[in-house]
Design a protein around this nucleic acid. Structure first.
Length: 286
DNA sequence: CAAACTACCTGACTGC
DNA sequence: TGCAGTCAGGTAGTTT
């Protein structure tokens, strides 16, 4: 599912295929895709049309189109959202079944489609918020941001009273990490998902965060992670990082480091994959 | 105030 | 073959 590396792949694709172009028409096929745009579907269509796309920015799993006049078009892919360059010969009767929003441009180039099966994704037009849209002011810097502060993030995690994986998934602590990269980071750092942040040492938390940065950088270099057609880049192509996963989705397979069978636990209403030998369960605390 | 829980969604898959 | 149940999981909003 789209986490930081996958969203960054999409950002780069949009930067290449949408930046500099003038939006001539916006068609919202599903009102739910613009539910965060409080003025509604037709207002979204008429307000966004006519703008030029200046550039595409990203923080964590959010991305936003910087429009001329300093306005922003904020988007989140949710679980299954995609931005796709529409096929050159696409016609109305030929649309993707989960097409939610189509952006048509004033030039002869292809439209950009927002496609989303599970409809957790969406977008909103935010006037004058190109620098940092207000709805994501609470989202922490991500590890690939030049201003990301590792030491401060270590301190923030250690000040919390929770389990390490919950802290990694908390987008107000560090952004961009989802279930896949949380598990991979913890496996690399040899830390169990339920270890208490309050008692982890500074070097241990640092090791986990450095692993997160490394694994997401490697995934980005491989075009992101995808298990199926739900995650693809703007040209509909899959990344290759799933072949490099050591823990996530690998239950029953040998740990690449020690050979012990990878386990899967239910945690936080989702799955956690880990090596019971490399990442021993914390001792129960009273 | 912080931590934890839940609703929101659709489609693939499993078991009977 | 069909159908109910389970799973996938990021975020905002609510509850504890």
């Amino acid at each position: 599912m789209p986490e930081l590396p996958e969203v960054e792949v999409v950002r780069r694709g949009l930067q290449k295929h949408a930046a500099g172009r003038y939006i001539s028409r916006v068609s919202v096929l599903s009102e739910r895709a613009v539910r965060r745009h409080l003025a509604g579907r037709s207002d979204f269509e008429s307000t966004v049309a006519g703008h030029q796309v200046v550039e595409i920015r990203r923080r964590g799993k959010y991305l936003w189109w910087v429009l001329d006049d300093g306005d922003a078009l904020l988007a989140h892919l949710g679980m299954s959202g995609q931005f796709r360059v529409s096929a050159p010969d696409a016609v109305d009767g030929d649309r993707h079944p989960h097409l939610r929003v189509r952006f048509t441009f004033s030039d002869a180039g292809p439209a950009i489609d927002f496609i989303d099966q599970r409809t957790f994704g969406g977008m909103a037009f935010l006037p004058g918020q190109a620098e940092l849209p207000h709805p994501i002011a609470h989202i922490a810097l991500d590890p690939l941001d030049p201003a990301y502060d590792l030491a401060a993030t270590v301190a923030r995690i250690r000040s919390k009273n929770t389990e390490i994986k919950r802290a990694l998934l908390d987008q107000t602590v560090v952004s961009g990490i989802g279930n896949i990269y949380a598990d991979e980071s913890l496996w690399r750092a040899k830390v169990h998902y339920a270890r208490s942040t309050a008692v982890l040492t500074r070097p241990t938390v640092r090791r986990v965060l450095e692993a997160a940065t490394a694994v997401m950088s490697e995934a980005l270099a491989n075009g992101g992670t995808s298990f199926d057609a739900l995650y693809v880049n703007v040209n509909g192509e899959s990344g290759y990082f799933d072949r490099s996963l050591a823990a996530y989705g690998q239950q029953g397979r040998p740990c690449p480091r020690c050979g012990t069978s990878i386990r899967r636990d239910a945690f936080m209403n989702r799955s956690s994959f880990y090596c019971p030998h490399c990442q021993p369960k914390p001792r129960a605390r009273r």
